[in-house]
């Protein structure tokens, strides 16, 4: 008797493999949903920055930090669960959400939140990829082992979102009478723009998003131009 076309064991093996894959995705969806909620909340609180004078940052940032704590907790759960599986197999599922979470942390820190005791409330601090990893208590740019981490791309994309938000803040800080803030943002955004020029980009998402930085630069420069035209730039430039 000739062997059958398909070994029955093969079907069972593949079926259970697909089912396992499906279940992992379901579980991930749940965690990512939760992370999304915390990120949305935190972003919402952060958006108040546009209508809050600098003197009241501290209270606002305290609230933001609470949201971030929730993010960190959920990222921890995500990390623990996802590390059981090949990282890049599922990375695309959470990458976007993690980018947004990274943005909230970078922006919060830039505005003076999450600051080290030595320099409380210092505005203009940029968290590096390593700092972001420390904040979330996860590794970054892992290469030697297969586990959850934050990638360079995620960090850069998160940073670009911050640049965009800051260009908006430049406008609104002037409205609130804080011209020095606009000048400081201008310096920061220009420096970052120069930094992004250093990268060799391929024609991918990152490149498209990097291209958008120039609009942020333009927006901020326009604000500074308006100010300088009217001699409204504070004598002690914060650059």
């Amino acid at each position: 008797m000739a062997p059958p076309m398909i070994d029955p064991a093969l079907f069972d093996q593949l079926k259970s493999k697909i089912e396992e894959d499906t279940n992992v995705r379901k579980e991930l969806d749940q965690i990512i949903d939760e992370l999304n909620q915390h990120v949305s909340y935190t972003q919402g609180v952060l958006s108040r920055i546009h209508s809050t004078p600098r003197s009241k940052y501290e209270a606002l940032l305290g609230q933001v930090e609470n949201g971030i704590k929730q993010e960190i907790q959920t990222v921890g759960r995500l990390s623990a669960f996802a590390s059981q599986y090949p990282y890049y197999k599922y990375n695309h599922k959470w990458s976007r959400t993690v980018q947004d979470a990274i943005s909230t942390v970078i922006l919060c820190a830039w505005l003076g939140g999450m600051s080290p005791e030595s320099k409380p409330g210092e505005v203009g601090r940029l968290l590096t990829l390593e700092d972001v990893g420390k904040a979330f208590e996860v590794p970054v740019n892992l290469k030697d082992r297969d586990a959850f981490h934050i990638t360079i791309e995620e960090y850069l994309l998160g940073l670009i979102a911050v640049v965009d938000d800051l260009s908006r803040l430049a406008v609104n800080s002037v409205t609130l009478g804080d011209n020095a803030m606009a000048v400081q943002i201008s310096g920061f955004v220009k420096d970052l723009h120069a930094g992004f020029q250093v990268l060799n980009l391929k024609n991918d998402t990152l490149r498209k998003r990097v291209d958008s930085i120039k609009y942020a630069v333009k927006k901020v420069e326009d604000v500074v131009y308006d100010l300088s035209l009217r001699n409204l730039i504070p004598a002690q430039g914060s650059q």
Binding site: L126, T128, L129, N141, I152, E153, Y155, L156, D191, L192, A194, G195, F196, Q197, V198, L199, N200, L201, K202
Partner: peptide
């Protein structure tokens, strides 16, 4: 000169990593 600022070294490191990947 390529404009250098406080963040340039960081971006150079990231560039090398990205290049390796590409």
């Amino acid at each position: 000169q390529v404009v250098r600022n406080a963040y340039t070294p960081m971006f150079e490191l990231l560039r090398n990593e990205l290049d390796e990947h590409h």
